[in-house]
């Protein structure tokens, strides 16, 4: 079960360059019956080596823009720290629903238009 789940998470994260965490959390949480907090934290540990290996593969393949990576990456790190601090205050069902609707809208745009 763990290996099969890992294969799915790894494929998605390498192919789509992200989103593995969104598969890994329910894998740990719902399938392997871990606590939600443990699932979120451990998912990061699992995604880290996949991201490092995939990032190296992308860079070798020529998919790399140093300037853009530094600018956007700086924002991501700053936002990430703020998000982790806000986690307890803001993470309500409403935020999750808004985010889900945004994801579906962006998905429809990319898939059909």
């Amino acid at each position: 079960m763990m290996i099969a789940g890992g294969l799915g998470v790894g494929f998605a994260n390498g192919f789509f360059g992200g989103g593995g965490g969104m598969l890994c959390v329910p894998l740990l949480d719902k399938v392997l019956n871990e606590q939600t907090k443990v699932a979120h934290a451990t998912a990061m540990l699992i995604i880290l080596p996949i991201s490092i290996a995939s990032a190296i593969t992308y860079v070798i393949s020529g998919y790399f823009d140093l300037r853009l990576t530094l600018i956007v990456g700086g924002g991501v790190v700053a936002g990430g720290i703020a998000g982790a601090l806000l986690l307890k205050k803001l993470r309500s069902g409403v935020v999750a629903i808004i985010f889900a609707v945004l994801m579906i809208a962006a998905g429809i745009k990319l898939a059909f238009f």
């Binding site: 989103g19 969104m22 959390v25 600018i71 991501v76 936002g79 990430g80 806000l86 803001l90 993470r91």
Partner: peptide, 13 residues
Amino acid sequence: GIAGGLIGGMGMG
């Protein structure tokens, strides 16, 4: 970047 980081830090992908 900040928007992506915020959502990521909150554990929502």
